[in-house]
């Protein structure tokens, strides 16, 4: 079991926990927490895929010289991708919270089984 596999399986488990929480709970706030956990798991998996065993972070300095960079750094592309994903995830979470607030203000409940307007 390498470091990479541990990080990747932790990410997969987090995704499953998050999806389980989002699908079984009826309270919207708990569903939002579930989605956030699943998003964190996705980021962890992406970072683990870009990791190369025994290499340094993609920041060049005296310890990681430019000449040998391609043999000493990990893949920088997934890291840039995850930075974007975290920011977008924050935006999605903020939107979900705003809508949850609005639902509570108009309906007086956060329980989705009591929101039956679209149910037939």
């Amino acid at each position: 079991m390498t470091l990479q596999n541990i990080a990747m399986s932790t990410g997969f488990i987090l995704i499953l926990i998050g999806l389980y929480g989002a699908m079984t709970h009826k309270n919207i706030l708990r569903m939002i927490v579930g989605f956030t956990i699943a998003g964190t798991g996705t980021n962890l998996v992406l970072i683990a895929v870009g990791y190369l065993p025994g290499r340094a972070a993609p920041i060049l300095n005296a310890a990681v010289p430019i000449e040998t960079a391609s043999a000493t750094i990990v893949d920088p592309v997934p890291q840039a991708l995850v930075l974007t994903a975290i920011v977008i995830g924050l935006g999605v979470t903020a939107l979900m919270l705003a809508f949850a607030y609005k639902i509570h203000a108009t309906k007086g409940t956060l329980d989705i089984s009591k929101l039956t307007d679209l149910k037939w």
Binding site: Y51, P53, P58, I59, L60, I66, P76, V77
Partner: peptide, 26 residues
């Protein structure tokens, strides 16, 4: 796990400093 960088990562590793002058490739 890969043992070497793929082509796009290789490009960023070798061209970042000459093209942009930034130390942080990300």
């Amino acid at each position: 796990a890969d043992q070497n960088l793929n082509a796009s990562a290789e490009f960023y590793a070798t061209h970042t400093v000459s093209d942009t002058g930034a130390a942080n490739i990300v």
